[in-house]
Structure formats: C-alpha cells, structure tokens
Design a protein around this nucleic acid. Structure first.
Lengths: 344, 344
DNA sequence: ATATTATATGTAAGGGCTTACATTTTTGGG
DNA sequence: CCCAAAAATGTAAGCCCTTACATATAATAT
C-alpha cells in the first residue's frame, strides 16, 4: 500500500469513478456520506478507492465549497506552560472530531495579525480558536464583521458577540487568599498579572475581596506588578522581601511567577514554606515538579481547550447558534508550598 | 479595512484584475513575483489589490499547482518539554520563511499514521517534519516511496535516504559520565531511555564508554531501564536507592526522568546533591526550575527544529538536493544537582 | 401491465488560481 | 520610420472537487 502512485499523477476521484464504473459525482457523494447512493454502489466505490489508495484532496474539496475540516488556532507562542495545556485540550478534541489543526503563533502573524486573519478567513480554515490574551478591539471588530466563526479561550470578548470559554478567576483568587488567611497569614504579598487582562484583574479583585471580607487591611506595598513571566515573579518577590515588614505569604497571579518567586525566596536564604508560603495560579504541569511542590489554583486549561473546540464546531456547523460563554470552575490544589506563618 | 467584503463573495484575482484593468494572469504573475511584468503594471495591480483587500486563496493556488506554503509537523504530543522546544524552533524558522504550520499529533493519526501520511502527501502540505521517535521502517519506506519531501528530527533514518537532524547523544552522555567521574563518583546509577531509540542507545553507549575509559567496573545492578517518562525515573531511582550499595550519583537519560529521580531521592529522605547527585539530559526549560536546579546535558532542541525546517525547505525547493544529516553538538550545563560524593 | 413517484446516478458548471501558448506592445538597430 | 526580436500581456485549459439539475432506474399504486 504505497502512499500514492508514485508513478503517474495522484489518484483522483475520476480514477476511482472509472475503477468502480460509476461517475465522479457518485464517488463524491460516497465520500461525503451524502444520501441517495445505493448500498451496493457505495461498497463498490469504497473498494475501488481502497484498491487505488485514493485520498481526498482537501484543497479541491474546500475550493469546491466542501468542508476543509481544518480549524485554526492562534496562540502567542509555546513559551508558556499555560498555552500548551490549552493546546493539548484543543488537539484532543479536534482529534475526536476528525479535524485538522493549523497553528499560528502571533509573533508569526506579527503586528499584522489582522492580515493573518484575512488570510485565514479567506481560505483554509473553517473557524478559528483564539488564545490571545491581548486582543485589540479593532481586531475583534474585524473578525466580527467578517462573519467568520471564532471562539475566544480565556479572554473576554469586549464586543460580547462570540462564544468564549474562561475560568472563574475571581473565585479562584478569592479561594487562594482565603486559604492563606485561614492558615493564619495576615501580611500577604500579591503579584499581579498583566493588568490589561481581565483574568489578571479578576484575580486581583478576588484577592482584594477576600482580604476585605476578613477585615485585613490592604497594604499597597504588598501589591506589586508582574507580567505573568517568571522573571517578574522573581523581581516582585525580591521587592516584597526587601520590605521592612515583609509578607509571610505570597500569592502570585500565575504559576510561572510563583516559580520565579520561589527562586527569589531561596536566594535570600529563606525557606519555603517555613519562612514564606507561596501560592500560584493555573496549575501548570511544572507546578508539580517544583520543590516544594507548588500549592496553586487549578485552572482547567485542557478542558478549556476542549470546550473551546466544541463551541467552535458548533458555530461552524450552525452559524446561527447564539454565541455562548462557558465558565469553568477553578479549584484549590494544596501541595507543599504553604503552611501557617511562624509565630513572631 | 475589513477582512473580506462581507457583503458579496470574497475578492478574487478577477476582481483585482478588473480593478487594475489587466488580466487575471497578470495579477497572478504579480502575486507570484514572476518576471515579465512591467513595473508600472505591477504597482497598478498591487494598488488595486490593496484597495480591495485581496488575499490569495491558498487552496486554489495550491490546487492549480502553485505552492501552498504549508508544511506539516508530526509529533507524538505536547506532553513533553522536549517536543515543545523543537516545535518552538520549527515555528520560528517557519515564520521567517513565511510558511504555515500544520500540526499533527500521532495519537491523532492513530495507529494509522500511514493513512495520515497519504492524506498529507496528497494534499495540503509541501513537506513534512517528523519528530517521531518510534518510526516503523514500513512507514519510512512508504514515505520514501512517495517521493514526498520529509526530514527527520532527532531520529535516525534506517533507510538512510532522507535529510535528518540530530545531536551528539553519545558524546553528551560521555561528557555527563565523565563529569560525574571527575567529581569523584564511582558508583553511578544509569537510567536508560527507550532502548529501541537510537538516541537512548547512544546515550547508554556513551555512558558505558566513559566508565570503561576510566577503569570503572560496570555493575549491571546500577543500570536500570526507563522509558523517558518522569514516572519511570522515579521508579528506577527507588530501585537504585534500595540497593545494598546504592549509587552516589544518578544519570538519567533525559530530564523528565531526572525530575522523577529527584522526587524519589527526596522521598527516601536523602539530599540532592549531598547524598546523591543527579544529572539529566536535554536541558528542557523545566530543568532550571527544579530544586536544586538540574545539571544536565544541553541538547539544542530549538535549533534542531530550526535546522530541520531549513533542510526541509531545501528539499522542497529542490527535490534533487542530496539528503544530508546534520548533527548538532550537545553540551554540559552545570547547575546545582551534582557535587562530589560524601567520603565514606 | 402502465402510470406515477421516489430513488439512484450522471452531466456539467463552476470554485480561484497557475501556466503554456498566442497575441500584442515595446524596444532598438538599420 | 520600418522591422525583427524581446518583453509584456491576454487567452484558455486545466487542478480536483461539489452540487444543482437532468436523466435513468427502481418501487409503488392502480
């Protein structure tokens, strides 16, 4: 069974039709599972195709107005455990649905992601999944206008027109803070994410709300900006630790920063969690490999990917389905990086 | 600048031709940078296209015999820091070359990756990058027969017909062992990879060679099988540590297993590196986040991805280019997980 | 058995592009 | 200023498929 008749041209629908003694249209019908083909004919065609090693040419099919079964995925890059988890979920679900995946990274699309979009919208893919934290509303507007199916993963559609998936960031942060408070911490450092992102804002708000609900005064010195990168977690923590009255616990808005925070804590010779507790957010796979193992808020990244695909496929199937937003629950995962503060 | 005239049909080459007052063929020539178009005409066309927001339809182009500028990438999955690094390199280089990336995971292709291949070979992609450790030679033979451009990343082509990229596994392992020996270790545990893979074999051989060169007897009890997964590193280490005369250092054939090994060492209450040194292989990003930071052999994964793309593009460009194999150097990265053994 | 439907199959027209070949325009030498 | 050769442009035939529409065949009713 060779991949293609290396000799002549690739096998087309005509070859199959000829072999089976039917017309090309019938072959097409068979391969698209269209009704109105006698069982006997169908079998005949399938056999012929099998024998010849026919494989549909997607390009032609999609040119001719059929379905390409390819969906696009736009991600910032693979630098991030977070994105990878989502991609994994996407991949799984796509596999189940028999769709192919075309990956674009934003750095690739460059500043000109609008252009990329035109390319996509025009061509190959039937819909697109966006895992792009920072979406310009102009871009969204464009996308919206194009009438092209898309869904947002872990981002809020300011236009409110598309389907999207996200997680309970606020609640997760609230739970994290509450956990720390329950442990007895009163001075809790907080490292923010990129505050243009709703997820970062929600986490911040959840954190603040928890403090308020527990009558803990908010000390601005304990809140420092991060950007979701490991380095910023490190920097922020150094800053926090240099305070005259440093925190006994640090809540990083994501795991990468938490990892950076751990480095910083150790670097000043303090112990985790004896001297300072650390909690993250996301529960990326690496969170299990840190030492001590990182306590964090689990965000169902993989599932977000899966759900995203489902929503997208739904949109593709029936463009008139009203868009919906699905919010998945976050969850506290207790591991080894937090404990009650030392007594003074 | 909307993505496409949402109103009418998408903009085609004809619309542009009409707008510019030339024929469609000329527009095609312009967009393919073919010679024989007067500068003035070219500009006219470009302007018209710009004005209309024309974007080439890849499907049609590639159907008609043009280049699709899409390359396929077959990977086992995203579970692995190792694969991700390679993918990142691939993505970068592809971006530079203006190509799109179609990702397939083998679990998706299922057992039937030959079928997947037929699909690919027939259609969309112009070539394929294989990051698949376990390639059946039947599969390879098929691929070879198809005459379809492909390159192997970090795998050896038993047929020896294609371009491929890999790293100096033997030398890397040799260096790792030598480093440990230089530190004073004499009882060194070794956790193998999947021994069907040439990379695993080479690492093993390199390790053994170093021992021999330094007159260290080879104790079979110190060599235990792993499968490149974290869990197996853990298991193997438990086994090693249970020995009546346990090793003072452990060399894991990859970083994931090294991470597992660290867990195991800690679990029995031993210290890294005081009681047992650990060294890995690969230098995946996580290796920097373990505690203590993992000493390892750096494999230029990202670059392997980049080089793979270059080789593939070369093949696509000119199918008659004789295939070549590029081997990149590995390198010892000393961090904190190794130190001289305690004196008895 | 015949007329009437329902069902199965075939025909042909694109879909947007590339490219060999035909035609027109330009250029430069005489 | 004319003519041949070179350069630019246009024409038309696919690439492989899908899908209305037309046609042929089978099933049902009379």
């Amino acid at each position: 069974m060779s991949i293609q008749r290396n000799s002549g041209h690739p096998i087309t629908i005509y070859d199959v039709a000829h072999e089976a003694g039917v017309s090309d249209a019938t072959v097409s019908r068979v391969f698209n599972n269209k009704p109105g083909v006698r069982e006997a004919t169908r079998t005949k065609v399938l056999n012929a195709a099998q024998k010849l090693g026919y494989v549909v040419n997607m390009q032609a099919r999609s040119l001719a107005g059929g379905k390409s079964n390819v969906v696009g995925l736009l991600i910032p890059g693979l630098d991030n455990g977070y994105v990878i988890e989502i991609v994994r979920g996407v991949d799984q679900e796509l596999a189940r649905s028999g769709c192919e995946l075309m990956v674009y990274t934003t750095h690739r699309a460059g500043n000109d992601s609008a252009n990329y979009l035109r390319y996509v919208a025009n061509g190959l893919t039937e819909g697109i999944l966006l895992v792009v934290p920072l979406l310009s509303s102009e871009f969204l507007q464009n996308l919206e206008n194009s009438g092209y199916p898309y869904v947002l993963i872990d981002a809020v559609n300011t236009l409110g027109h598309s389907s999207s998936v996200n997680a309970t960031n606020w609640q997760g942060a609230y739970k994290a803070a509450e956990y720390l408070i329950g442990l007895g911490h009163r001075r809790i450092g907080f490292i923010t994410g990129i505050m243009q992102l709703s997820s970062a804002i929600d986490r911040y708000d959840g954190f603040i709300a928890a403090l308020k609900d527990h009558q803990i005064p908010i000390d601005d010195a304990l809140i420092v900006r991060g950007d979701f990168q490991q380095q910023s977690g490190y920097d922020a923590t150094r800053q926090l630790l240099a305070l005259s009255s440093p925190p006994t616990a640090i809540f990083a808005s994501n795991d990468m920063m938490a990892v950076g925070a751990m480095d910083a804590v150790r670097e000043v010779g303090l112990d985790i969690p004896a001297d300072v507790s650390i909690i993250g957010f996301d529960n990326i796979p690496q969170a299990m490999n840190t030492y001590p193992k990182l306590t964090t808020i689990h965000q169902p990244l993989e599932e977000m990917g899966r759900v995203g695909v489902k929503l997208l496929l739904e949109q593709i199937e029936n463009p008139d389905t009203p868009p919906k937003t699905i919010t998945l629950a976050t969850q506290l995962v207790i591991r080894d990086s937090c404990q009650p503060p030392k007594r003074e």
